[in-house]
């Protein structure tokens, strides 16, 4: 029984990471109806940047903040430079650009920072075991941080005028433009925010899985699964979906399929959701008129 409880808690801790990446995906999806295949690679790059800053002797939380700002800028620049020119192109072009971005950032990260697996420091440590040894300090801390980020994002979208403008731009770009919202910049801001959230997820997961250029590929897959499970157009749903996938993955890994087939679990969830309930658990059902 204690094993089960431990698996569930560990699942919630990794689920927090998936929830954060899923949220980043959903934010870009809501604004542009694209799924950013390069989200994971962008997060990995951010984590490497964080490591470099920390190794330069900067205290952890200062480096954390600096990384978030740098990642935000990277996100905005990518949208402005790469996505803007093709915004009216067919889906194939968008997928192509995302794949290109994935290749450039993923391999570029390996080129600059090397392919050796690196340890990444965790800001959370504790002398005595927590909750009777069920949960590690890092698990608790990283879950708190991701939940904090999610609350901040929620407050931002609900209670600031900028958040309202961003939602308007995503919901109905034409009307938003008519009332003076700069829709293009809102999209760029959305990309920046998504990159910043991805950076937080990367820094929280790196102490657990260790840092290497391919760190996020599997995580991105779980985040896809979480976003789809919760409904790709619903940020809160994506967060719940992310946590659910984390727990499912851990339980399946521990009791059903073993660790070798963990990625296949994500694939099964994705196909299952898309075939059985394409709108996800909390998504809107979209009917198209012809």
């Amino acid at each position: 029984m204690e094993g089960l409880a431990h698996q569930i808690i560990a699942g919630i801790a990794t689920g927090g990471i998936y929830a954060a990446v899923a949220l980043a995906l959903v934010m870009i999806y809501q604004a542009t109806h694209h799924v950013n295949f390069a989200q994971g690679e962008m997060a990995t790059l951010s984590t490497f940047i964080a490591l470099s800053i920390i190794q330069a002797g900067v205290p952890y939380w200062l480096a954390f903040l600096a990384t978030i700002i740098v990642s935000f800028v990277i996100g905005v620049v990518v949208e402005r430079v790469l996505m803007r020119p093709v915004q009216n192109a067919p889906v194939l072009t968008h997928v192509g650009v995302f794949i290109g971005l994935l290749l450039i950032i993923g391999n570029g990260t390996g080129w600059i920072f090397g392919y050796t697996t690196k340890a990444f420091p965790s800001p959370f440590s504790s002398e005595q075991p927590l909750l009777g040894g069920l949960v590690s300090a890092h698990e608790l801390g990283s879950t708190a941080v991701t939940l904090g980020v999610l609350v901040l994002v929620y407050l931002f979208f609900r209670h600031t005028s900028l958040g309202l403008a961003m939602r308007a731009a995503a919901y109905n770009p034409r009307s938003a433009r008519l009332v003076g919202v700069r829709v293009g910049w809102m999209l760029a801001l959305g990309w920046g925010l998504a990159a910043a959230i991805g950076a937080v997820a990367g820094m929280m997961v790196a102490p657990v899985v260790f840092l290497d250029p391919n760190m996020m590929l599997g995580i991105l897959l779980y985040a896809f699964a979480g976003a789809l499970l919760g409904g790709i157009d619903n940020p809160a749903g994506a967060v719940i979906g992310g946590f659910a996938v984390g727990v499912l993955e851990n339980l399946a890994g521990a009791y059903v399929v073993g660790t070798e087939l963990k990625l296949t679990v994500a694939l099964a969830i994705i196909i299952g959701v898309l075939v059985v309930k394409p709108s996800g658990l909390f998504g809107r059902v979209v009917t198209s008129r012809v």
């Binding site: 295949f37 889906v91 897959l221 990625l263 694939l267 994705i270 196909i271």
Partner: peptide, 25 residues
Amino acid sequence: RLGGLYLALTTFSLAVAVPQILKHK
């Protein structure tokens, strides 16, 4: 049942999962 992007997503995850499936005991 999957429009353009969802199909890309599903096949993307298929591609990532293939080596794992092939290695399975």
